[in-house]
Design a protein around this nucleic acid. Sequence first.
DNA 1: TTGTATGCGTTATCAT
DNA 2: ATGATAACGCATACAA
Lengths: 353, 353
Amino acid sequence: MLIAEPKNKPLTLKSVSKVLGVSTATISNAFNRPDQLSAKLRDKILKQCQELGYHGPNLTARTLRKGESGVIGVLLSDSLAYYFTDPVANQFLTGIAEVLEKNHKQLLMLSCAESTKQTSGIETLPDGFIVYGTQDKNPLFERVLQTNKPIVTVDFDTDNYASINIDNQAAAKEVAMYALQHTQNANIAILGLRLIHSDRVCRITEDELYNEGESVSRRRLTGYMQAINEQDLNITSDYIWHIPHNTYEDATKAAREALSTHPQPNCVLCMSDVIAGAVLAIAREKNIQVPQELKVVGFDDIPEASRTSPALTTVCQKSIEKGRLAASKLVKGELTQKTILPTALIKRETVEF
Amino acid sequence: MLIAEPKNKPLTLKSVSKVLGVSTATISNAFNRPDQLSAKLRDKILKQCQELGYHGPNLTARTLRKGESGVIGVLLSDSLAYYFTDPVANQFLTGIAEVLEKNHKQLLMLSCAESTKQTSGIETLPDGFIVYGTQDKNPLFERVLQTNKPIVTVDFDTDNYASINIDNQAAAKEVAMYALQHTQNANIAILGLRLIHSDRVCRITEDELYNEGESVSRRRLTGYMQAINEQDLNITSDYIWHIPHNTYEDATKAAREALSTHPQPNCVLCMSDVIAGAVLAIAREKNIQVPQELKVVGFDDIPEASRTSPALTTVCQKSIEKGRLAASKLVKGELTQKTILPTALIKRETVEF
DNA sequence: TTGTATGCGTTATCAT
DNA sequence: ATGATAACGCATACAA
């Protein structure tokens, strides 16, 4: 039996080497490079370390020395707390977690809430980053860029980095076309997500309608507008809502406003399934029959979409796959290719039975 | 204008100090201890660092030196991928994230998937841990314990550590009493979560029914059984299901089995709202009227519980609050108190209209 | 096959 | 007020 160090002093390679009577290098090799010593000695050392309660090298010191931590950072474009409540983000994170676990990488969640002043230097820890969503003026993102570490961007694009996206415009157009083709005398409302910079649920103005941009929402809006034009229909900005967060609460406010408008919309194009779910709830509350009196389409195809009643017609984007792909690009070092993932129109019950 | 170092060499305190012509200590002080130098010099240094693109000390080196990383680890009792899909866990994590962000701490997600062999040493990085759910034979948990770092446990208890729990047994008994009191000629089924160690949805055996334990599920089961006894009713083990994961898929299987049993249950006690939601879906599929022909109660009070149709009667446990409290205990260093959070019976529509 | 010595980037102590 | 220097715990080149 070996004499253990005092409980309060954490064990180090050096202290353990003293107790075992071998050099620090040998113990380090026992853990990291089995070929550098005899199997017999290695086994003996590993067993003795276990007895002592030394579970292996300190990650911080090893990271400093090797310049590699085994940690992957996921940079989100809003507060963490928000992302845990968003079903789309949850699927995305699920995909990431799956791949990282398989590759023995740790997952560090980084929110943009980091203020400029209080710089923690956290960006120096991870070996690479998955950046989810446009990082408008996010100081942490700037610092991440300057680390020159591997980056994969998702749902937006930046020169020189691998990215994963979908064709939001085409997908939005397709689902809108389908909805409009099944609507007589269409009276359209659009419930948009993050169309403008405001924390309030509100309608957008005519000016804002033409403020083009490259964001996910703007692409979807463009797709909707294309469908509306091709069907020789039209819509004014006061039938287009801005919803700041993809939450049931915000969406419910917008849905209530939209379905209280006269003339009442009979076709609501929603930029997420969460929003569409809220529309369904308000429709039930107001005794509006879906799909007979009101067509509703969503976007994302979250798990709940197939369980609403009536089940939601929507655009399937494989969010889990997005996460998996982002993580595996990072892990494999495929750092240049820009991927457009396919989407699919999912016809359920909210447009036609 | 200062001459920047070559782009590929990351800037360090030392290299920056050379360029600026001051010592490393002074720059370090400029970032960390404003009182150690004149405000004028500090401002100048900070400005010059910014120009050079040096954003502050490397976290790894600083952690090694200070023994403090600003990272909090959340240790989960299953795979990460699973936890992102569980609405209860999401609420819990939301609460944690809220508090950590406010205190400028980073969140590292640690799953128990870490194998014993491939020890990454990740437990040496965080300053403290939130441990969620029983860590039966989890090697990472063992190593976490040995770090002697601050720990808060949630949904289970271990000597000497702060913990947060609810009274599962009392809450389960209360909701079961309420359901049974409203059921004529009660024919009870229990849809349990993680009652035994099996990956399959299945009924439990008579033996397993009496395998008492201290897990959350067992406490709830005990509460249910107490209510059943007090109502002079009884239940046999073949009306008690084991569901391995709190997912809609697993729950649906169990719900389908349970509602296909003869005699058909008219009162289903579910150990989670996800499970209860699945029961509601199957009931609709089979044209069973809830609550007229079938009473259903859940557990947790997830956001969706109020939106099902009919709305779910359940036990409210404030999962977000759990997360908030766990994080704030850790941040504040309140490391001894064991907290029992209150629960509340939420009467909605699945027992009586 | 094993041991010695250096440096990773930082902070804190101690001089100056 | 500022600068030199040691130490944090480890991995690796190199010597033995």
